[in-house]
Amino acid sequence: MTAPRARSARQSFAVIIAGLAALLVAAMLVSATVGYRLYGLDQLYQAIFAFDGSEAATVLVNLRLPRAILAPMVGAGLGVAGVLVQTLSRNRIASPDTLGLNAGASLAVVLASATLGITSLTGLSLVAALGALLTSMLVFAIAAGAGGISPIRIVLIGVTIAGLGQSVVQLILTSNEAQMQNLLFWLAGSFVDRPMALAINGLPFIAAGGAIAFALVRPLDALQADDATAVSLGVPVSLVRIGCFLAISLLSGAAVAMAGPVSFVGLVVPHAARRLAGLRHGPLMLAAALIGAIYTTLADVLARFVIYPVEAPVGAVTAVVGGLVLVLLLRGRAA
């Protein structure tokens, strides 16, 4: 008797997903062609499939295309990671930032730059990924160390580690101002001048994190209820939390390596995705991946114009836009 209803719900969700996918493709095309210089789609096509070494083709292939591909990867990863963090912590205002991963990555980058003199983008992204990974291991070890991984402990420890990392970063930055100037832009997150190799290197990590996340879809649904209920439904709660943590580390670590710390995506996107897809993690994470990708890609386009002709850091754009969107979403919910 409910089969028609279920089918229509599934159909309308399929339409939403198709719409988001189309929007993503459009956003990526805009990102590749619109900026300080405007290019046509025909030029883009030519640059990819019939590269002629012209200036336009060089800019498109070497500068525009990488960011049109990196931004959605980062956004999708952060969107899914955001859903995972919020479910793991049972806290709708948690995000990968809350677990201290971005702070850890920033700290690693600043330290590596100050002590080892690493300045190359590839070097920094590797250091950032390591920093995020180490931080997640640290948070996990402390959270799991004393009396089980409780959602509230995860948040408390994450916030503490994040605060600690941030203050050390500030300390090093202010004490070493001249040398650290070039890091400031990295610290706000950006897709400028990223080589395509970053996307290729990041892809397996995003894919692995995504695969783990989607394998955990059903236990995550059940973990939205309290622990006693989840356990009595047969959910291996600790195992799921470990898997969840691993997926978050892979996704956020890859994201911070590719773009630097991009804030607010992991916080806002899950809220928007829940509006469209409901609370079941399969549809929810699919929607979050797409919305995150679109959001980050468009934020990257916007970053080229807000303080034109200079580029703004994309992290600043995602934060400002995300903050406004979040306020709107929360207002809508209350009304």
Binding site: R90, D221, A222, Q224, A225, D226, A228, T229, S232, L233, R274, G278, L279, R280, R333
Partner: peptide, 20 residues
């Protein structure tokens, strides 16, 4: 087992909860 004071997100729908 129906636990004492069970909890689930406020915006979870009835069907989403029963499905669990």
């Amino acid at each position: 087992l129906l636990a004492q004071n069970p909890s689930a997100p406020e915006d979870m729908t009835v069907e989403e909860l029963v499905r669990l």
